[in-house]
Simulated assay, not measured.
Amino acid sequence: MMTSMDDIMTEFTTEDPSSVSPSVTPDYDDYDDLMCDRASVRVFRGRYEPPLFWLIALVGGVGNLAVVWIYTNFRRRLKTMTDVYLLNLAVADLLFLVTLPLWAAEAWQGTWSFGSPLCKTTSALYKVNLFSSMMLLTCISVDRYVVIVQSTKAQNSQVERRRCSRLVCLGVWLLALLLATPELVFATKEESKDYCQMVYPSHLGNRTKVLVLSLQVSMGFCLPFLVMAFCYSVIFAKLLRTRNFQKHKAMRVILAVVVVFIVSQLPYNGMLVFEAAQAYRMTVTDCEELKRLDVVGQVLKSLAYLHACLNPFLYAFVGDRFRRDVLQLLRGCRCRTTASKKPLKFRSPLSSTRASVMSDSDTSQALSL
């Protein structure tokens, strides 16, 4: 789970905040208990997060399960690098979405009642999803760049690229697990506290919190954003020079992908930067302002979580071939339940020669699968 304001605020002192050494870091919960009653924030969280988290879990679960369902029913469909990345992206999002009911229950009850081991597991699963999904989205943008901008090279190296995609996915998962190590080590539910949160030993100092937050912002947003911005800007420029009726749809898809990524991720990562500054040296000590910032942080966190349920619609269901696969499977299920009717024949999506930006055979289609 993303680190809340409770987890990173430190440095309680009666001295002027600007004079406090960042290496002396009493827990912010002490500051909360002694100086600022934030019960209203907890009430807001209990009303706001549970229904939204359940909605994200249900919608995202259906969408991502559909992606996995398609790829497992059409095994030969994994014929491009982006196909492999999308399957792994759906699995990563599902791992995160199964944890949301637990966080919803914590917000509703006002306490984490599932024990410290599950606290570590759910916190780590969130970070694994965060890093793996952002890296996979980056890989998709790079693959689109190669297929469209360097189409000749892509055509001549299809087999090697498919083999490479599996190795890339393995590397992504291993790196995501490595980056989630702080959650496995520091996430816990203390007996004296009500919440599952990151608890750092006092001897490690406040800089450890700053390092963890900086790692999340840099690897979970900044680096993927820079790569995606470069790839999609070059793709967009190339499409502008293309005379094809599909290019307008392709440009709309690119704009949607970039806009959703920025709107859902940039505000919360900006809040994380502010929280890192707070963790290093208290710049805000007014109770009312702290409560307002905490509420804003909760809202922006939920906005960032929406990306897990929007990914299937941005990257999979936008494709004509993917929609045809879904319809074929649904019709096949309906036909099997009607024993008296002769099964209908459907043209296999594998027989279609129409391809897309996400496939290697024809880049004129509009970012469809």
Rank of each mutant, 00 (worst) to 15 (best):
288 E>F: 04
251 M>P: 06
291 K>S: 04
247 K>G: 10
266 L>I: 04
272 L>A: 02
277 A>Q: 10
273 V>M: 03
242 T>C: 10
248 H>Q: 14
277 A>S: 13
270 G>H: 02
237 A>F: 07
270 G>Y: 02
279 A>S: 10
275 E>I: 12
271 M>R: 00
259 V>E: 12
274 F>D: 06
255 L>I: 15
293 L>F: 05
257 V>D: 08
232 Y>P: 03
240 L>Q: 14
260 V>K: 04
265 Q>A: 02
266 L>S: 06
231 C>A: 13
272 L>H: 03
277 A>Y: 08
237 A>P: 01
269 N>A: 02
279 A>K: 01
270 G>K: 01
258 V>N: 11
276 A>H: 01
254 I>S: 07
262 I>L: 09
257 V>H: 09
262 I>T: 07
261 F>H: 08
248 H>R: 14
251 M>Y: 07
258 V>E: 11
265 Q>G: 00
289 E>R: 13
290 L>K: 02
286 D>L: 04
264 S>M: 02
255 L>Y: 15
290 L>F: 06
240 L>C: 15
294 D>L: 07
280 Y>K: 09
232 Y>Q: 05
241 R>E: 09
272 L>E: 02
282 M>V: 15
256 A>K: 13
274 F>I: 09
297 G>I: 02
282 M>S: 13
265 Q>C: 00
233 S>K: 12
289 E>L: 11
231 C>R: 05
251 M>F: 11
248 H>K: 14
269 N>E: 00
255 L>V: 15
274 F>V: 06
239 L>R: 05
286 D>P: 03
291 K>G: 06
236 F>M: 10
258 V>D: 10
280 Y>L: 10
282 M>K: 14
289 E>K: 12
256 A>Q: 10
298 Q>P: 00
264 S>C: 10
279 A>E: 02
